[in-house]
Design a binder for these strands. Structure first.
Length: 641
DNA sequence: TGGCAGATTAATAAT
DNA sequence: ATTATTCCATCTGCCA
């Protein structure tokens, strides 16, 4: 059985390549891969027979690193853990559902969700009022609504590190997890913070390390876009995709430098991948410390996985005696650097470190935002959450913002206008949120926390919200298929009747837009669309009215239902005059793609460590090296460097 | 215009 | 090796 060769020429494996060389390269890669695999089979059996090695899948891939599911709970568990419920799925289907929502099974295996619009928490909070002691049951029934609080993890009180570890179900917890987590929190992360250079986050002097600035020089060829009538420009690019210019232009040095970095990326060995969360990854973020690679991933059921990739700080001088290398008898995996917390009851839609890396914000479908404040030693503080109108919530930030079951927080952007390192509330000035029903909210955390505005900017879901570095413009994009730019200062509140009006907008192929992000320099706006395109606009914030993209790359974004959608993301630092971004890909073999700001594909990163489609990707913020991170739909994270 | 059914998608855990 | 499970995605088509 040979894989279908499909068509030769410039197309291969369902993709078309702009140059023959690239196609050939792709093919070589594929062939090498196939070979490797077949060779592996032999090698595997050989190894297995000889050394009988550890357990499952000597196979390179598959990630032996990271979380491991506890198979069976030993009968005599000392922890007093409750015996595992007989069966997970059955219990869930059997009806442990949220009060107001029922799921009915239909013939074809599809589900129907019926029930009133999740009425706000039933007034009688009965048992769960404020149970201080966390019950461990959870997890298996992560979806059940702990009456009130929209089924969130708790009533909004703080979660300590150990709380968050406890909330992880027995299935994904191991001995010593709490101690390890506490050390991460009390020691490893604080050390990592120390390493973050001030230049990385201080405003004013250029956002990024290395270097410098964007060519503020040429004020830009303002894309004249507007004059071309509604018609499209030369649509002729039909041929394919990338509008590339063959001759690299002037800023060669920068270009070459970046190419060198990008070409050097690899992720071939098993150390480059680990299972970090139990479920599908919705968001990834990387701590800015230049001396560590500490990756965070948020999954569908509210788990936050933290992977300390190189075991940063492990050898610490006074490392705890109690748990040195030898202690772990059962779980040798106890020191693979993966930590798991459960901090939300719904998907973690966005994860974001603030500039100095002192705190991590998590936004979730469960309607809450939590702050992991390393600097102040406070773990998962609920910073905002949607609450109903009941009087008892009057003191909560987010009081009266609950809009029922069909509303959730889809995206978040840290507000850097007051300085990303700002004192204020825990290391960031505040944040913007966008929701499934098209709302945009802003929370100012500088004082006690205040909801600054709450406006409906779209009739449908808004997927992302992005703040322009100049602090005056935000971009929203979502199911309406239109990117819109807004003047932050002129967003009307809910109470005011005036209709919000965007400064400018752009539609893209009529389908929805997965993401729209301003580049760190602010010069460009990058969108990822369901009409299979990546589009780059330049100086869009200077245009009023209709915008047109400067560059357009065709890109298969049909991830389907079971994978998180693609959202191309910029490198947060500026390389001299060159900005780059990364995006997942449906190509086979799987890869992550790095492009530059002209839409040129610099690299397809492949390797044994990429075991599945990397739906959500990001970069390590450091500009002195290049590290690419990808999260897939089974909770695995791959890093390339 | 809005609501629903149905198709589609990829990867794992369980068999 | 095959099957069942995922089911807070999104698009199209059909109905009112």
């Amino acid at each position: 059985m040979v894989d279908d060769d499909a068509s030769e020429s410039f197309a291969f494996d369902g993709r078309s390549y702009p140059t023959y060389q690239e196609m050939v390269n792709a093919k070589r890669r594929r062939n090498a891969d196939v070979l490797a695999k077949s060779g592996l089979l032999e090698a595997k059996s050989a190894i297995a027979s000889s050394s009988g090695g550890g357990g499952s899948g000597g196979g390179i891939v598959g990630g032996t690193r990271g979380l491991k599911r506890a198979k069976v709970v030993p009968p005599g568990d000392d922890d007093g853990r409750p015996a595992p419920p007989p069966r997970r799925k059955s219990s869930r289907i059997a009806g442990a559902m949220a009060p107001d929502v029922r799921v009915e099974r239909e013939s074809m295996g599809s589900f129907v969700i019926s029930g009133a619009d999740a009425s706000p928490p039933s007034s009688s909070s009965s048992s769960s009022s404020s149970s201080p002691s966390l019950r461990v049951e959870s997890s298996t029934t992560s979806k059940d609504a702990t009456a009130g609080y929209n089924g969130r993890v708790n009533d909004g009180s703080d979660l300590s590190v150990s709380d968050a570890v406890e909330l992880v179900g027995y299935k994904w917890r191991g001995d010593g997890d709490t101690e390890r987590a506490e050390r991460l929190f009390a020691r490893i992360l604080p050390d990592a913070i120390e390493d973050v250079p001030i230049a990385n986050y201080r405003r004013g002097g250029g956002r990024a390390g290395g270097g410098m600035g964007l060519s503020s020089g040429s004020p830009v060829s303002v894309v004249d876009v507007t004059n071309t009538t509604s018609g499209r420009p030369a649509q002729s690019t039909a041929a394919t995709t990338v509008p590339r210019k063959d001759d690299v232009d002037d800023d060669d040095d920068a270009h070459r430098g970046i190419r060198r970095l990008v070409d050097g990326l690899s992720c071939d060995d098993g150390e480059c991948v680990a299972k970090v969360t139990p479920d599908r990854i919705y968001s990834v973020a990387c701590h800015p410390s230049p001396n560590a690679v500490i990756v965070c991933a948020g999954d569908k059921t509210g788990h936050l996985g933290v992977w300390n990739v190189d075991g940063y700080n492990h050898g610490g001088d006074d490392a705890m005696n109690n748990e040195n290398a030898s202690s772990s008898s059962l779980s040798s995996s106890s020191d693979d650097g993966v930590h798991l917390f459960k901090v939300h009851s719904g998907a973690i839609s966005t994860l974001a470190w603030n500039g100095p890396g002192t705190s991590l914000l998590t936004s979730s479908y469960d309607g809450s935002v939590r702050l992991f404040d390393v600097e102040r030693g406070r773990a998962f503080v609920e910073v905002f959450a949607t609450y109903g109108d009941e009087v008892k919530y009057r003191d909560k930030l987010g009081y009266g913002t609950d809009r029922g079951y069909n509303s959730w927080i889809q995206g978040m952007e840290i507000d850097t206008r007051y300085g990303s390192g700002g004192g204020g509330g825990g290391g960031s000035g505040g944040f913007f949120l966008c929701t499934s029903e098209g709302r945009v909210m802003h929370v100012d955390m500088r004082m006690k926390g205040r909801l600054t505005f709450d406006a409906v900017l779209s009739e449908k879901k808004i997927n992302t919200i992005s703040l322009h570095p100049d602090g005056n413009v935000i971009a929203t994009a979502g199911l309406t298929g239109i990117v819109q730019l807004w003047d932050v200062r002129k967003i009307p509140t809910l109470s005011s009747k005036e209709k919000p009006k965007p400064i400018s907008w752009q539609e893209s192929g009529g389908r929805s837009i997965n993401s729209a992000y301003f580049s760190p320099s602010g010069k460009r706006l990058l969108t990822t669309t369901m009409s299979n395109r990546l589009e780059i606009m330049e100086d869009s914030h200077l245009v009023a009215g209709r915008m047109m993209p400067k560059m357009r790359v065709s890109h298969d974004n049909q991830t389907g239902r079971w994978l998180s959608t693609f959202m191309a993301r910029w490198h947060p630092g500026c390389y001299t005059n060159r900005e780059i971004f990364v995006v997942g890909s449906m190509k086979q073999p799987r890869c992550m793609e790095v492009y530059d700001h002209d839409g040129d594909l610099l690299r397809e990163i492949r390797g044994d460590a990429i075991t599945a489609v990397a739906s959500r990707c990001c970069f390590h913020p450091d500009t002195n090296k290049l590290i690419v991170i990808g999260g897939n739909s089974s909770g695995r994270v791959t890093i390339a460097r």
